[in-house]
Amino acid sequence: MNTINRSVFEPNLQRDYGLLTSSVSGTHAIVTGAAGGLGKGIVEELLRHNASVVAADIDTRALHALPQHPNLHIHHVDVTQYASQLALFRYARATFGRIDAVYANAGIATSGYLADVGQVGEQDTPTPPDLNIIDVNVKGVLYTTHLAVQAFREDKRSNARGGIGTNSKPHTRHPSIILTGSFTSFLSSPSTPAAYAASKHAVFSLMRSLATTGEYEGFRCNLVCPWFTPTAMVESSVRILLTGIGMAAAEPVVRAFLIAGMDTSLTGAALVIDTDGLFVIPDTTINSHCAQAFRDRYLSVLKMQHAARVYRTPLILTGGLLTVLSLASGVSYVLRFLRKCK
Rank of each mutant, 00 (worst) to 15 (best):
N2C: 10
I4K: 05
N5E: 14
E10T: 14
P11D: 04
R15H: 09
D16T: 08
G18P: 00
L20D: 04
V24A: 11
A34R: 03
G37R: 07
G41S: 06
I42K: 03
L46N: 04
L46M: 08
L47I: 06
R48W: 03
R48E: 12
H49I: 02
H49R: 12
S52G: 00
S52W: 00
V54I: 15
V54M: 05
A55L: 07
I58Q: 09
I58D: 00
D59W: 06
R61F: 04
L72T: 08
L72I: 04
V77D: 04
V79H: 03
T80P: 01
Y82E: 13
Y82C: 01
Q85G: 11
Q85F: 00
A87W: 01
L88P: 07
F89T: 08
A92S: 06
R93F: 02
R93Y: 08
G97C: 09
D100K: 09
Y103N: 02
N105H: 11
N105S: 13
N105E: 10
I108Y: 04
I108Q: 05
G112S: 07
G118C: 13
D124W: 00
T127K: 15
I134M: 13
I134E: 07
V136K: 06
N137F: 12
K139Y: 11
G140H: 02
T144W: 07
A151G: 02
F152A: 06
R153G: 03
D155G: 15
K156P: 00
G163A: 13
G163C: 01
G165A: 12
K169M: 09
K169H: 03
K169V: 12
P170A: 13
T172C: 02
T172A: 12
T172Y: 08
I178C: 01
I178V: 15
S182E: 11
F183C: 04
F183N: 02
S185Y: 04
L187Q: 12
L187H: 06
S189K: 09
P190R: 10
T192D: 09
A198P: 01
K200I: 07
H201L: 05
A202N: 05
A202H: 04
A202C: 04
F204R: 15
F204E: 03
N222Q: 13
V224A: 01
V224Y: 07
T229R: 08
S237R: 15
V238M: 15
L241A: 11
T243M: 12
I245H: 08
I245R: 14
P252D: 10
F257K: 10
F257E: 01
L266A: 01
T267D: 05
L271P: 05
D274F: 12
T275W: 03
D276Y: 11
P282C: 10
D283I: 13
T285H: 10
R297V: 06
S300Q: 15
T313S: 08
P314M: 02
P314A: 05
L315E: 11
T318D: 02
G319K: 07
L321W: 05
T323S: 07
L325Q: 08
S326I: 05
A328M: 13
G330N: 04
S332P: 00
R339N: 12
